[in-house]
Design a protein around this nucleic acid. Sequence first.
DNA 1: TTGCTCCTCACGTCACGTGAGGTGGC
DNA 2: TTGCTCCTCACGTCACGTGAGGTGGC
Lengths: 140, 140
Amino acid sequence: MQQSYTIRELAKEFGITARTMRHYEQIGLLAPGRRGQSRIYSAADRTRLRLILRGKRLGLGLEESRAIIAMYDPDHGNEQQLLRLVERIREQRAALRERLRDLQAMLAELDAVEAGCLASLAQPRAVPASTSIARRRANR
Amino acid sequence: MQQSYTIRELAKEFGITARTMRHYEQIGLLAPGRRGQSRIYSAADRTRLRLILRGKRLGLGLEESRAIIAMYDPDHGNEQQLLRLVERIREQRAALRERLRDLQAMLAELDAVEAGCLASLAQPRAVPASTSIARRRANR
DNA sequence: TTGCTCCTCACGTCACGTGAGGTGGC
DNA sequence: TTGCTCCTCACGTCACGTGAGGTGGC
């Protein structure tokens, strides 16, 4: 089947710019083929891009994503390296779990802020300044 | 009561650097008082900082946070602005839910990668490249 | 030829990081 | 005096954005 993509196709699919993809190539995160001067991306390139963007959504830097993607690669030879890999995976997982808790807390906060807004809208004059969202939440 | 804070106290409380707080002041997001040359932060300053940082966690830029904080202010809180705020909250919440799924997927993958590593360690020759996660996930 | 997408520099931007060098009060 | 935190420049960094100017094929 040999599925391949242009830079514009992948950029559109993932909602990023072509410049972003060229940037990832410049720092060695992607390595698409060429047809003349134009880049052609394989299904494997597309997968790597997807992993990079997921890392970004999670707030990882590009170098952190590079490290995590490297973990997915099984050609990581010897026993010592594998053991170090397992250790790094455990560290990453602990950090990600913390983010998970942050996220869940934030979703709950947004629910509360929205409810406050809707209450304000329902009774515009019943909400004096001293009970504004900023003030009500000021004491933690 | 007149509660006040030093730059270091607030930085430590929120897990940011003093430089970050000076930066927010430079662009007019914070306006602490002074005692001599040192900055002194009021409870209101602390609240603003908390709102800025929450915006950051939600992926907003500083100018976006500035706009939203202005909306929290009851003096600017007309009905149209509140409705826009509710809309933005709903958008952000959808994005956060996506992140939540990302995180859970990544945690699950790391579990699988770790299991693969441990299996490799137990039986070094039993894990061919064709079963790597990157390859298995290549088709979506 | 027009219109489209592709390309390579290369400077700009946003949100800080990171010293360098100095002040002030317990 | 030592040690601490505070300060102000000011250049560096990361992840791109944004033109400028040019190529290639339907």
